[in-house]
């Protein structure tokens, strides 16, 4: 009944922003393989609530993904039918 305790079984780990946690990852449109990890199969940008990316890096990530799309390094959408 939600007695103010933990929800969801309490086994959920806190998501960590991968760019804050590891300074080695370059967030740049010229690294499509890294950016690709933050796209769904259909080529949509994965929301930060799913990936755990912090707001600041999510903004930068979105910009870089859009830049990469402009020069065809990343897809705007997949070729899936339907």
């Amino acid at each position: 009944m939600g007695f103010g305790g933990k929800r969801g079984g309490g086994s959920r780990r806190k998501k960590v922003c991968r760019f804050c946690g590891n300074a080695d990852i370059v967030l740049n449109y010229k690294e499509p393989l890294i950016l690709n990890q933050f796209l769904t199969e259909r080529g949509k940008i994965v929301p930060s609530r799913i990936s755990g990316t912090c707001a600041r890096h999510q903004r930068a990530l979105a910009t870089e993904i859009k830049r990469a799309r402009n020069v065809a390094l990343l897809p705007f959408t997949s070729n899936l039918q339907g």
Partner: peptide, 10 residues
């Protein structure tokens, strides 16, 4: 390896 925890969640 470093972020095995978050990877699992992902």
């Amino acid at each position: 390896t470093e972020e095995a925890a978050t990877e699992e969640v992902a």
